[in-house]
Lab assay of single mutants.
Amino acid sequence: MKTQEELTEIVRDHFSDMGEIATLYVQVYESSLESLVGGVIFEDGRHYTFVYENEDLVYE
Rank of each mutant, 00 (worst) to 15 (best):
R12K: 10
S31Q: 12
M18G: 03
R46I: 05
Q4V: 10
E30T: 12
V40A: 03
M18Q: 06
E43N: 12
Q4D: 04
M1V: 12
E55H: 12
G39P: 00
L7P: 01
D56I: 15
R46D: 05
S16E: 08
L7S: 02
R12F: 08
I21F: 03
I10K: 09
E20R: 14
I41V: 09
L36T: 02
T49W: 07
E53T: 10
G45E: 03
L24N: 00
R46A: 07
I21W: 03
V51R: 13
E43T: 15
E5Q: 11
E53L: 15
Q27A: 12
Q4G: 04
S31P: 14
F15L: 06
E34T: 11
E6R: 04
N54S: 09
F50H: 00
F42T: 02
M18I: 08
E9D: 12
H14V: 12
V40K: 00
E53A: 15
E6A: 09
I21Q: 01
Y29A: 06
I21R: 01
M18L: 11
V11I: 09
L7C: 04
Y52H: 02
L24I: 12
G38R: 00
H14M: 15
I10Q: 08
F50Q: 00
G45K: 04
M1K: 13
E5C: 12
E43I: 14
M1D: 07
T23C: 13
E53K: 14
E43A: 15
Y25D: 04
G38I: 04
E5P: 06
H14L: 14
E60L: 10
T8I: 11
M1T: 14
I21Y: 02
D44R: 01
E60S: 14
L36P: 02
L24Y: 04
Y25S: 04
E60A: 13
L57A: 02
I10T: 08
T23D: 09
G39E: 13
V40T: 03
G19F: 03
H14N: 06
T3Y: 04
Q27E: 11
R46N: 05
F42V: 00
D17Q: 15
Y48T: 01
L33V: 12
D56N: 15
F15R: 01
E9W: 09
Y29R: 05
I10S: 05
F15V: 02
E43H: 14
E9K: 14
Y59R: 03
R12W: 12
V37L: 08
E9N: 12
T23K: 12
G45R: 04
E30R: 08
Y52I: 06
A22L: 11
D44M: 02
H47D: 03
E53N: 13
N54C: 08
V28P: 06
K2W: 05
Y48R: 00
V40E: 00
M1C: 09
G19R: 02
V28G: 09
I41H: 06
Y29N: 06
R46E: 05
E34W: 07
E9M: 12
E34N: 15
V37G: 06
S32T: 13
T23A: 13
R46C: 09
K2Q: 06
H14T: 11
L57Q: 01
E43F: 11
H14E: 05
V11R: 01
V37P: 00
M1F: 12
V26P: 01
F15K: 02
V40N: 00
Y48A: 02
Y52V: 05
Y48F: 12
E34Q: 15
H47F: 07
E53C: 10
V37R: 13
Y25N: 04
L36A: 04
S35Q: 12
E6N: 07
E55M: 13
L57C: 05
F42S: 00
Y25Q: 04
F50P: 00
T49N: 08
T3I: 04
S32H: 12
S16L: 10
S32L: 11
I41R: 05
E20Y: 10
A22K: 15
V51M: 10
E60F: 11
E55Y: 11
H14K: 13
M1W: 10
G45Y: 03
D17F: 15
D56T: 15
E55I: 05
E34P: 14
V28L: 13
Q27V: 15
L7G: 02
I10H: 07
E53S: 14
E5H: 11
L57R: 01
H14C: 08
Q4R: 11
I41W: 07
S31I: 07
I41Y: 09
G38Q: 02
A22M: 10
V28T: 15
A22Q: 12
G38T: 02
E6M: 09
D13V: 15
G19L: 03
H47W: 11
E34K: 08
T3Q: 05
R12D: 02
G45T: 03
D56P: 02
Q27N: 14
S32Q: 11
G38S: 00
V58W: 13
T3L: 05
D44T: 03
L36Y: 04
F50I: 01
H47L: 05
E43V: 14
Q27M: 13
E20C: 11
T23E: 10
Q27G: 08
T3N: 08
I21A: 01
F42N: 00
Y48N: 01
G39H: 12
I21S: 01
Y59A: 05
T8Q: 08
F50K: 00
T23F: 13
E55Q: 12
L57N: 01
E6K: 06
D44E: 02
V51W: 15
L57V: 07
F15A: 02
S31H: 11
E20P: 10
K2F: 06
Y52S: 02
E34Y: 08
L24E: 00
Q4T: 06
V26L: 06
E34V: 11
L24T: 03
E30L: 10
Y29M: 07
E34F: 07
E20M: 12
D56H: 15
V28S: 12
V26I: 14
T23S: 10
Y29T: 07
H47Y: 07
K2D: 04
L57I: 10
S35P: 04
L33I: 13
S16D: 07
R46S: 08
N54Y: 08
Y25H: 04
Y25A: 03
H14I: 15
M18C: 07
Y52P: 00
T49D: 05
E30A: 09
V40D: 00
V28I: 15
E6H: 08
V51A: 08
I21P: 02
E55A: 11
V26G: 03
N54T: 05
V26Q: 02
L36D: 00
V28M: 13
S16P: 02
Y25F: 05
Y25E: 04
Y29K: 05
Y48G: 01
S16M: 11
I10R: 10
T49P: 03
V58G: 06
Y48P: 00
E5V: 09
L24R: 00
V58D: 07
L7R: 04
F50Y: 06
V11H: 01
Y52M: 05
E53I: 15
D17K: 15
T23I: 12
K2R: 10
Q4S: 06
L36V: 06
Y59S: 05
M1I: 13
D56C: 12
F50T: 00
Q27T: 11
S35D: 03
V40S: 00
E5D: 10
Q4K: 13
Y29P: 05
Y29E: 06
H14R: 13
L24H: 01
E43G: 09
E53M: 14
Y25C: 06
V28R: 13
E43Y: 10
E5Y: 10
Q4F: 11
G19Y: 03
L33M: 13
S31K: 11
T8H: 06
L36H: 01
Q27H: 13
G45L: 04
E43C: 12
D44H: 01
V11C: 04
S35W: 10
T3R: 06
A22W: 07
R46Y: 04
V58P: 01
E30P: 05
S32I: 11
D44Q: 01
E9A: 14
Q27Y: 11
I10L: 11
S32D: 11
V58Y: 13
A22T: 10
E55S: 11
A22Y: 09
E55W: 09
H47P: 00
G19S: 03
E43D: 09
L33Q: 13
E34H: 09
F15Y: 03
Y52D: 00
I10G: 03
E53H: 11
H14G: 05
Y52R: 01
T23H: 13
D56E: 13
V26C: 05
I10E: 07
T8L: 13
T23V: 14
R46G: 04
V26S: 03
F42G: 00
E55T: 09
S32K: 10
D44K: 01
M18N: 03
E9G: 10
D17L: 12
D13K: 15
F50C: 02
